[in-house]
Design a protein around this nucleic acid. Structure first.
Length: 467
RNA sequence: GCUCCCUUCGUCUAGUGGCCCAGGACACUGCCCUCUCAAGGCGGGAACACGAGUUCGAGUCUCGUAGGGAGCACCA
């Protein structure tokens, strides 16, 4: 039997980090085992589902590179099928109509809780066999077994056992004519031949009742794997209030999709001491059965480290497009200034994100807006600065070519001629070009400015140094 | 309240009864390198929640305690 996994988000918001990891694991598991990955949109909640959210999820999946083999399949397109299956269940006496109002059910739950039990339905209509009638409160409830227990071997949680006495007769069809989640997933997973259900562990408690529905339908029960939650830095539930939660927020923050994927695959899973995984390695090595049971915290600093790793080791030409996206976003006009590829090369092991890289690139695309006082005081207004800058200006103006190597050689020559350390030459030049005392190597810093702009800035610095 | 689940350095984790007075990574930190900042190299501090038990021997097995989480919807 071929392995089939599915990712089934409900389009009520962004694709968040937890969902992205679930999708990754589903994708990885299907890839490694030569199976299929199905994308299903669970949009039966007509109140909260939106087309915008559907598109946001699709965009995020595409950015991450998690391509589905089938779908997207929309649950709203399958209403007839759910009705058909529910009717069969009723006809077979495995489900029944119930007519309680919300108030009556609330009272029922309150009574159960007062008796020290968990709030649940008391099964009033279970054996009444009342004739079908029109009623605004009419729902269909599943006849859950009352005896025995449900046992399943979860691939990450291990063996889970649940007494049927703990379960009540859940609603499978609402009074508004739409199926409920617990019913629709089972029908879908059955129809789509899903063999591995990988999802968040907030669903563990739903699994026993879903298994009972599989049994009632005479369908094979898939394997389950329930993933622990991803918490924020404080160990609390991830929320917009405290952290970036949407996958696309991470794009804006300057992270690479591969870095996010690599971080996510290591969150709750490992392969010995290995930290860095190419996509192919993930596919070859990942096994859902090796995922940890405990929840883990999201650590932005480790993500940043991984991101920098890819920034400095990936083929730079594959990174340029994403870098230009960030430059544009930072309001930088790439048409006037150095090649983005050269800038990327100069900055890639000095920053953790592309966003930071774009911000630091500004110095070569736009004029100096503000001189750093300390930098000026320390490196421009000292005994040697004036003569160093004059020598550099003359040399740069006369240079036969314009390259980092030329700048490098010039700096060394001036240092030798004036009997100064390299720092005494490079720092005044750096401040002249950037207005600050921090930038990439002096040869890159000057080279990237371009000859005309470099001379212009040195002239301006000469004025300041002479004051 | 009830049911289920979880617990190794600050964080992510290795560890499937002796190889562990617990290994790696991020973060922190010392030194080296050095034109600044990084990157890189070499070091350092830092954890088996607690208590019983099983065993010659327990981070690893059992039970309990404490702490944390999830679910108990006509939401997914």
């Amino acid at each position: 039997m071929t392995v089939r996994t599915r990712f089934a988000p409900s389009p009520t918001g962004l694709l968040h980090i937890g969902g992205a990891r679930t999708a990754l694991y589903c994708w990885l598991e299907s890839r490694r085992r030569g199976g299929k990955f199905v994308l299903r949109i669970e949009d039966t909640d007509r109140e909260r589902s939106t087309d915008v959210a559907v598109q946001a999820i699709l965009d995020a999946m595409a950015w991450l590179g998690l391509a589905h083999d089938e779908g997207p399949i929309y649950q709203t397109a399958r209403l007839g099928r759910y009705q058909q299956v529910a009717n069969e269940l009723v006809a077979q006496g495995k489900a029944y109509y119930a007519y309680e109002s919300r108030e009556e059910i609330d009272a029922m739950r309150a009574a159960a809780q007062a008796a020290g039990d968990k709030p649940r339905y008391n099964g009033y209509y279970r054996e009444r066999n009342e004739p079908l009638r029109e009623d605004p409160n009419r729902v269909i409830r599943f006849k859950n077994p009352r005896e025995g227990s449900v046992v399943f071997d979860d691939k990450v949680k291990g063996r889970v056992e649940w007494a049927n006495a703990e379960l009540d007769d859940l609603v499978i069809f609402r009074s508004d004519g739409w199926p409920t989640y617990n019913f629709a997933v089972v029908v879908d997973d059955m129809d789509m031949g899903i063999t591995e259900v990988i999802r968040g562990d907030d669903h563990v408690n739903n699994t026993p009742r879903q298994i009972n529905i599989y049994h009632a339908l005479g369908a094979p029960v898939p394997q389950f794997a329930h993933l622990p939650m991803i918490l924020d830095k404080e160990g609390k539930k991830l929320s917009k209030r405290t952290s970036a939660v949407g996958v696309m927020d991470y794009r804006e923050l300057g992270f690479l999709p591969h870095a996010l994927l690599n971080y996510l695959v290591r969150l709750g899973w490992s392969h010995g001491d290995q930290e860095i995984f190419s996509i192919d390695e993930m596919v070859a090595l990942f096994d859902i059965a090796d995922v940890n049971k405990a929840p883990s915290r999201f650590d932005m600093e480790k993500l940043a480290w991984i991101n920098q790793h890819y920034l400095k080791t990936d083929d730079p030409t594959t990174l340029v497009a994403e870098f230009e996206w960030h430059l544009t976003r930072a309001g930088i006009d790439v048409a006037h200034g150095p090649q983005p590829l050269d800038v990327l090369l100069a900055l890639r092991d000095r920053v953790h994100t592309l966003k930071e890289m774009a911000e630091r690139a500004r110095i070569w695309y736009a004029p100096i807006v503000e001189w750093d006082d300390k930098a000026v005081a320390k490196h421009l207004r000292n005994a040697n600065a004036l003569s160093v800058l004059q020598a550099a200006r003359a040399s740069l103006a006369a240079a036969a070519d314009w390259s980092p190597a030329m700048v490098q050689q010039m700096v060394q020559e001036i240092a030798a001629q004036m009997e100064l350390g390299l720092g005494k030459v490079a720092q005044p030049l750096r401040v002249a070009i950037t207005g600050t005392q921090v930038s990439p190597s002096i040869e890159d810093t000057v080279y990237l400015a371009g000859r005309a702009e470099a001379l212009k800035r040195i002239d301006a610095a000469l004025v300041i140094a002479g004051q």
